[in-house]
Design a protein around this nucleic acid. Structure first.
Lengths: 248, 248
DNA sequence: CGCATGTGCGCACAGTGTGCGCTATGCTGG
DNA sequence: CCAGCATAGCGCACACTGTGCGCACATGCG
């Protein structure tokens, strides 16, 4: 009979596992924890091992619920698409202005990407090709607004693609910029100041950029970004509205 | 005196290095070879070791010419920006139509990204924040066209941002889609066919998508992509032109 | 000739995604 | 109440990554 306190011999009596005290692993818990980790530490610090650690689990346990890391990322992307707030196209209040409804959807998409800047880095790999349920639902809603505005079937799709391309393109570079800022650990003021010599050199080489930088100097960068986004959004909507004839 | 053929003892007489027969390593050769590898094998297969192998060099030798992998990627991105063909704004022929000149630049940017689809995956991480010399030069040219069109200093920048955001957003998802296609090894026809059940399910869930897919059915996908890009580009240019008043 | 400078590279370290096969747990049918 | 089975969790291992360190060597300058 072995000494009961001998831990080195794995003994049936020394119950090694406390029975299920954690709420167990699940696809949902993995996805939400992954989003938490991505928000907190950025895409370059998402690894299966670190994610498992946060879930008090072994690294390879995750593979019981998720085929591989790429699939996890697809799930995570579709999950954040669920955060979009696109006005309900069946709501009679919204019938008054398709433009306002679509603008709201566009701002909602931008806000989501700025809330989760890693989405920008990941969209270039995943694209819009995964087409999960949330992306499907939100696309359907936006499309409905374009249809109600008067676009015919095929053109409504093209209009939606145009709008989304603009929002994603604009916001992706914002998000990439903000991510780099976060990685640098500096404030935006410090960052801009540290780049001063470089931008001045660029301006010397490209005189066309001169008054562009002069115009921005001294403005609140966040306000400037908001304004720039709004400007382009109005132009895109103008261009689309022109297709609807004089009354649109 | 050791035996002269004893290779296990590193001997000065057994000249281990053939003297310089390769054209030596350089920052330029590394960057161009990296582009070759990226084009051939995609961004997920670019590693310092594989790149060094292609250059008949040791992995860590690259670090004599490039600070780290991130810097290499910045260099590579600026290099492909050099492939853009934006009409010379000082060329009197181009003065006739700012719209045509800018459309040409936009198509050139799209063509570049489709030639190097990995750019899409990398732009989300690097953004436009790196601002190498090539990106600077091309931006200057596009900006000049907008100025010539009649946009004032600040607004010309906003107009350029809008245009570029649209092109990058649209082309990024094209490139991501094509990259995935390439990874899958199937032809586009096979890929679409293999997704049929999934898309039919999506259409069942989102009836708004129905006639969108119906409209695309049977079309040449590449033609459809070209047409979609062109449609959105015209809308964006319309929206911008409207800011210039009736004569623009 | 001797020395300084800089290039190339082998080694090593910490960390990655993920396949394999073992263990234990909870469910089900007798 | 017990036998058996499906399955969740996990330790180990493999091939691979980016990159710091320090040595060997080639080259250019005195």
């Amino acid at each position: 009979m072995p000494a009961p306190d001998d831990q080195s011999i794995p003994s049936v009596w020394a119950r090694p596992r406390k029975q299920r005290e954690q709420p167990t692993l699940s696809r949902e818990s993995i996805v939400t924890e992954a989003i938490g980790l991505l928000d907190a530490e950025g895409v370059e610090n998402l690894s299966m091992r670190r994610l498992a650690q946060r879930l008090n689990a072994g690294a390879t346990s995750l593979y019981r619920h998720v085929a591989n890391k790429d699939e996890l990322i697809e799930l995570v992307v579709d999950e954040v698409y669920g955060e979009l707030r696109v006005p309900d196209p069946d709501d009679p209040d919204a019938a008054a202005g398709w433009r306002a409804a679509i603008a709201e959807g566009a701002h909602s998409l931008r806000a989501m990407i700025l809330r989760h800047p890693w989405v920008a880095a990941v969209l270039g790999q995943v694209g819009l090709a995964s087409l999960g349920p949330n992306l499907g639902r939100q696309s359907g809603r936006i499309l409905a607004h374009f249809r109600q505005a008067g676009f015919q079937a095929g053109e409504a799709g093209q209009a939606m693609d145009t709008l989304i391309a603009y929002v994603i393109g604009m916001t992706t570079s914002e998000a990439a910029y903000l991510s780099m800022l976060a990685r640098s650990g500096k404030t935006e003021q410090e960052w801009i100041a540290s780049l001063r010599p470089l931008t001045e050199q660029a301006v010397r080489d490209e005189p066309m950029l001169t008054d562009l930088y002069a115009a921005i100097q001294g403005e609140d960068p966040a306000k400037t970004r908001d304004a720039n986004f709004g400007y382009g959004l109005e132009r895109v909507l103008d261009g689309l509205a022109a297709r609807l004839g004089p009354q649109g």
